[in-house]
Design a protein around this nucleic acid. Sequence first.
DNA 1: CAATATATAGACAGACCGGTCTATACATTC
DNA 2: GAATGTATAGACCGGTCTGTCTATATATTG
Lengths: 193, 193
Amino acid sequence: MAVSRRDHLVDTALELFHRDGFHATGIDRILAESGVAKMTLYKHFKSKDELILAALRRRDERFRNWLMREIERLDKTPRGRLLAVFDALAAYCEMRHFGGCFFVNAAAEYGSREDPIHVAAAEHKRLVFTYVRGLAAAAGAADADTLARQITLLMEGAIVTAYVAGIADTAGQAKDAAQILIAAAIPPASSAV
Amino acid sequence: MAVSRRDHLVDTALELFHRDGFHATGIDRILAESGVAKMTLYKHFKSKDELILAALRRRDERFRNWLMREIERLDKTPRGRLLAVFDALAAYCEMRHFGGCFFVNAAAEYGSREDPIHVAAAEHKRLVFTYVRGLAAAAGAADADTLARQITLLMEGAIVTAYVAGIADTAGQAKDAAQILIAAAIPPASSAV
DNA sequence: CAATATATAGACAGACCGGTCTATACATTC
DNA sequence: GAATGTATAGACCGGTCTGTCTATATATTG
């Protein structure tokens, strides 16, 4: 088989969870869609929650890899990459089956901050922030933490607004705001690097 | 009775939906918590979805009233009110039972953009944007639409980051960013008004 | 008092939930 | 060819879901 049963199961679950939500997606539908037997699922995962966690891990890995490659492809300069973040985001929001941020949606359904699913969502956000902070530091920001926080706030706002309010080009508007914030945060001497 | 059965039902549903989510909150729990009989619920609402819509309407009304009063109380100048938005937001995020944005959570569970629940969430976002745009225009922004969009993007980012990532003071960091954007958007001549 | 409206409790239906179990089919490997 | 491991289908369990129903209690109003 080209892809293992387990991988296929996680991919199918990921797609259905993102499209229909976690509680609204029953185990039986995932099995029917993937053509996998119930016992095979429960051999690989102890429970539905474990399957959700596996889907979150896969999504985190794929999304961050995609985002980083896209940003590194779009611009070669550190400062340019801080802005390219929003071009990548625009592409993300315009994808065919855009359904908002998978991790925000997960946290919305599993609101308890102690829930492993909520924890996994928080961890994803932390990793994205860390990546952006690296970009900000490389671009010469005096306070990389603050600039990275401002940029990630705009990113979150753009995704959630595109999804909930259905407004196009929020990423472009966020990019315009980011440009102003970057200019204010990075000393002119470093801006040409 | 001090409050009608219908109102009590909506209030209880609102609280449980926000705490535990929509799919995870069963009709029976709402009835047990509110002490209302099932037939009374179905006399006032055709279905669970209708009850959810009523909860969204009540929440929209209450939240926007609270936000506007808070902002108008915090600062008397139009420009100051644009920043006071984030002080109100900070207070909101620090409330005891803060559970993110009720409307973002609703849209996360009812992802289809045609779903009346998703539509109601989008409408709430539109109304908040309209209010902020009014503040921006009153503050003398040359392009009130653009500034209002930037500010609402920061608001959304702050709420979702405080909730999902569990980070404190995102509203304060958003306020710092907003100050820079406001300074860039409002002509100095108007800034003293 | 009688009539009406509105509330109650709780059984009930039919579907679906997550999860367990048995029995069977189909490879691969010895 | 026999044995092993892994997949399959699908019955089954107890519980919960939304929504409907009946029968009863209570309060108001004529």
